[in-house]
Design a protein around this nucleic acid. Structure first.
Length: 576
RNA sequence: GGUCUGGUAGUGUAGCGGUUAGCAUAUCUGCCUGUCACGCAGAAGGUCGCGGGUUCAAAUCCCGUCCGGACCGCCA
């Protein structure tokens, strides 16, 4: 029999009517003769009452936790002193019960939820997803996805799909390869992003494109990274950077308003890359708390503390009183993030004790003034080459956030702009692109190409940062072939090499390319932050663990000899 | 590749040289007609991840390994 309604949709209109409900047995309370069952479906729960004389009794008596059941009976208002909110105001007096599917004892108690080890939840993901908390995340994701589609469609964007089986191009990440059966020895690559395709769509005249695109990168995982993930990919023609930022802002404000009823600022704050790094030690600063890095390089220059005396950069963080153990832990963080060490000082009156205090005698007053450190408070200092020093202290800043619960409630969004166009790779001694090789440099900086100041070239590239997570990034693209040549030249691509690797794309650029640019949002990350989840896995229906394996489906798995033969492949498994 | 951290009944945990390996919950049985984390009584359930070592004695200490998790490298 068809169910009357979802459990949470039963209202006073159904009161004293015969209704049929279906769902899972969330809990069973057997009082001997009288049985109560809490039935759960995706909408909520409803208490079912089975009286001992009821024809439903024998069937209900067989039901166990997580079994699927159907009940028909009269919907009643609960006794007044027992009513709860929503469907908790009602109960169903069953006169017919059907056990649709008896469940074996589940491997974990669904009601324990969060307390259960994640690998067990992942192995039995379909059970984990029965938990209301998990269902709510799936639901929110679907709502955001629908809102994105509606908003961008209304703005004139076209949703276009791009291939998943495509060509490997030398971009940033490692590709996942798919062997070709029809041409043995050749491989497709799964796209790291639809980057080239979306630019080709601009060349094709689509003008405004978006797609919720699956992307694949074969790199090590993190709490906010999966090997296959979803990107909201956007590209627009005949626009400048501010046009792209404007659409992005309006879209994000719309999503937060409609889905979370949260107001985001208009406009979003903007920080340049330089400002973000210098002040917060990160290109994705968490702006839910202050704690800026303070500049003290010249205070220590030529001083008694030799480690700092000639350092290009010395930065300091002022925080509350910390224990030695906490400082040791923070030093570990600093070292893991590239610092040689983490110096510290404790304010005592108008001077300092502990740590490197014997070196700071005459600069104590100036340190106190600049940092505003309170009595008993701690200063944490890192020195070195500017980027190393600020990065290490930026990591310490985030560690302090976690240690002292500094982050405020809610959402803090910002644009990070003016990223460097080029990055010097110390290991290989070569220049590389920071964003991607088609990113347009700032027009005012073009003259710096090929000079020793080319690291100062600013790109028309920007990241969208939310609560310390990079949730989006994009750029204006190069549409001038001469600039493209300069860019390839800077990163050591000869015209031949460029043509070999991006030939079809460079051909396309030569046939009339509009000025264009775009952005890609990490959709999973956005959902993670919006839903307050601690990991990206919480907002993906069937995620992979930290080692890239799907504990439920047990992927990846070995291929059979026949499959390999058909593909012309042989496998050598790592022998030492 | 590296750093840190964990692995004890189905689940969550205590124990950290000598315990019958404890507790909670789930499971099973009995009792119970207004419960709602129902209650009460009882039962069953553990190669203490795996291998080696130290010791009279190892869940406990040491080494290795496997499996989780966080981070660094990596991820335009």
């Amino acid at each position: 029999m068809k169910r009357t309604a979802y459990l949470a949709d039963l209202t006073s209109a159904h009161l004293d009517q015969t209704v049929t409900v279906q769902g899972w047995v969330a809990r069973r309370r057997d009082l001997g003769k009288l049985i109560f069952i809490d039935l759960r479906d995706r909408s909520g729960t409803l208490q079912i009452q089975i009286e001992p004389e009821s024809p439903a009794f024998a069937e209900a008596d067989r039901m166990r936790g997580e079994s699927v059941a159907e009940f028909t009976g009269m919907l009643r208002l609960r006794p007044e002193n027992q009513r709860k909110a929503g469907s908790g105001a009602y109960e169903l007096i069953a006169d017919r019960a059907t056990l649709l599917s008896l469940a074996v004892t589940p491997p974990f108690e669904l009601s324990k939820g969060r307390e259960v080890a994640e690998d067990i939840r992942l192995k039995y993901r379909y059970l984990d997803l029965r938990r209301p908390e998990m269902f709510e995340k799936l639901k929110m994701r679907s709502q955001v996805s629908a809102a994105i589609t509606a908003f961008l469609t209304a703005e004139g964007f076209l949703n276009v799909e791009t291939p998943l089986l495509t060509r490997s191009t030398p971009e940033g990440a490692r590709d996942f390869l798919v062997p070709s059966r029809q041409t043995p020895g050749e491989f497709y690559a799964l796209p790291q992003s639809p980057q080239l395709f979306k630019q080709l769509l601009m060349i094709a005249g689509v003008d405004r494109y978006f797609q919720l695109a699956r992307c694949f990168r074969d790199e090590d995982l993190r709490a906010d990274r999966q090997p296959d993930f979803t990107q909201l990919d956007i590209e627009m023609s005949f626009v400048e950077q501010d046009d792209i930022l404007d659409v992005s802002e309006r879209l994000l404000r719309h999503l937060f308003k409609t889905v979370l009823n949260e107001e985001l600022p208009d406009p979003f704050p903007r920080l340049t890359y330089q400002q973000a790094m210098n002040t917060y030690g990160s290109d994705k600063p968490d702006l839910r708390f202050g704690l800026p890095l303070v500049e003290v390089t010249e205070l220590f220059r030529g001083g008694a503390f030799t480690a700092f005396a000639s350092a290009p950069s010395v930065k300091v963080l002022a925080t509350s009183e910390l224990t030695r153990k906490q400082i040791d832990e923070l030093e570990r963080v600093a070292k893991q993030n590239g610092a040689g060490g983490l110096a510290w000082l404790r304010r005592e009156g108008e001077g300092f004790s502990g740590g490197i205090s014997k070196f700071v005698g005459d600069m104590a007053t100036e340190l106190i003034t600049r940092t505003g450190v309170k009595e008993g408070g701690t200063l944490l200092l890192a020195a070195g080459e500017w980027k190393k020093a600020v990065t290490a202290l930026g990591a310490v800043r985030n560690a302090l956030r976690d240690l002292l619960s500094l982050a405020t409630e809610g959402f803090q969004v910002a644009w990070i702009t003016d990223f460097p166009q080029l990055n010097y790779d110390e290991d290989s001694g070569t220049w590389t692109y920071m964003h991607h090789p088609f990113t347009a440099p700032h027009p005012n900086d073009l003259a710096l190409f090929g000079t020793e100041r080319q690291h100062e070239i600013r790109a028309q590239a920007y990241d969208l940062v939310l609560n310390g997570f990079e949730i989006g990034g994009g750029s204006v693209r190069i549409h001038d072939p001469a600039v493209q040549q300069q860019m390839f030249g800077a990163i050591g691509f000869t015209p031949e090499a460029a043509s070999e690797q991006f030939g079809f794309f460079l051909d396309a650029l030569s046939f009339g390319t509009p000025p264009h640019g775009g952005i890609a949002w990490g959709f999973d990350r956005l959902m993670m932050v919006m839903s307050g989840a601690a990991s990206i896995r919480e907002v993906i229906a069937f995620p992979k663990n930290n080692r890239g394996s799907d504990l439920m489906a047990q992927a990846p798995s070995a291929a059979s000899g026949a499959q390999l033969a058909e593909l012309g492949l042989q496998v050598e498994v790592g022998s030492e």
